[in-house]
Structures are given as C-alpha cells and as structure tokens.
C-alpha cells in the first residue's frame, strides 16, 4: 500500500452525465494512485457512478441550474464520499427490491442495490438528497445482496 497523506476535496458538479463521468474518472485515478486494489476501484466506481446518476437524473432532474456537491476523502484505511443534490430527496426504504417478483423484469431500480452491495457503508441523510458512502481497503468486496450498512 502506498503511504500518503490523507486527501480530501469538495467540488460542485454540473447536472450533466458528462460532468459525472469526469468526476468518476478523476476520483478513480486518485484511488489508483493511492494504492487501492482493482477490486476496490471497481466497487467504488460502480457505486459512485450510480449515486451520481441518481443525484443528476432523479435529484436535480437534469436541471442545468442545479449542481451536485461531491466531497470525498481518502486515507490509509478508506475511501469516503458524500454526494448531495438540490432535489426534494427520497426515502430509500420506499425503493422496491429489484430482485423480487416482477421487479426482476423491470429495466430500472438497481442502482441503490448495487451501491449498498459494493460499499461497506451507505447512509442517506434525513431529507434523502444526500448520500454518504465508505469503502474500506482490503475488505471482502461483496456480501451478496446483504448490505453491510445501508440506511
């Protein structure tokens, strides 16, 4: 593992999918430089991608006047990220399980499940427009369908 000083950064991102892609690229490059494993980077990338798309599409409804605030930190133990949109928020408990019944055949609704499966902690703020996620280094990557902490 590369020994480095903790890194933290906050940025405001336009509500476009191109901007989301650029942010993911930047953060993944930073995780790579910080010595995270390929497995960690795959997991963090997938979760970040899903969270940003949720914020841009469902939170800010692609409104060009709205931004997504992204803060992240990386230290010797973990990658941590906070994503906040300007939308009205949602109740994560109201999201149906995409693995059950007819939901299995629906094209949407798998993003939150993937976030919870690939990150060690996924927490939503009270209003539901802010998500906080943590991925620890060198942990078993996935507990199938059983999020470690997801609320």
């Amino acid at each position: 593992m590369t020994s480095r000083a903790p890194i933290s950064c906050t940025m405001n991102v336009a509500s476009t999918l191109t901007a989301s892609e650029a942010v993911c690229h930047l953060i993944m490059a930073m995780l790579d430089e910080s010595g995270f494993s390929k497995e960690d980077i795959f997991a963090a990338h997938l979760a970040l991608e899903e969270a940003l798309i949720n914020a841009i599409r469902h939170g800010n409804e692609m409104d060009p006047d709205k931004e997504v605030k992204v803060s992240y930190s990386v230290d010797s133990e973990k990658f941590e990220v906070w994503i906040e949109d300007e939308g009205t928020g949602f109740d994560p408990k109201s999201v149906p399980d995409p693995r059950c019944g007819d939901n299995l055949y629906k094209p949407n609704g798998r993003g939150l499940l993937l976030m919870c499966s690939y990150m060690d902690v996924v927490e939503h703020g009270e209003r539901g427009n802010r998500v906080h996620m943590i991925r620890y280094r060198n942990k078993p990557s996935v507990v199938h369908g059983v999020p470690k902490t997801c609320r």
Binding site: F42, H45, L46, E49, E50, I53, Y105, K106, P107, N108, R110, G111, L114
Partner: peptide, 16 residues
C-alpha cells in the same frame, strides 16, 4: 470491463 445499472435496464428491454 465495466457497466452501470443502466446497461442492465437495456438488456431487459432487449430481452423483452
């Protein structure tokens, strides 16, 4: 090597 949940949605639509 990498895809998002949106691709899974695409596969569902194709299969239907």
């Amino acid at each position: 090597r990498f895809l998002s949940s949106a691709v899974l949605g695409l596969l569902i639509r194709i299969s239907k």
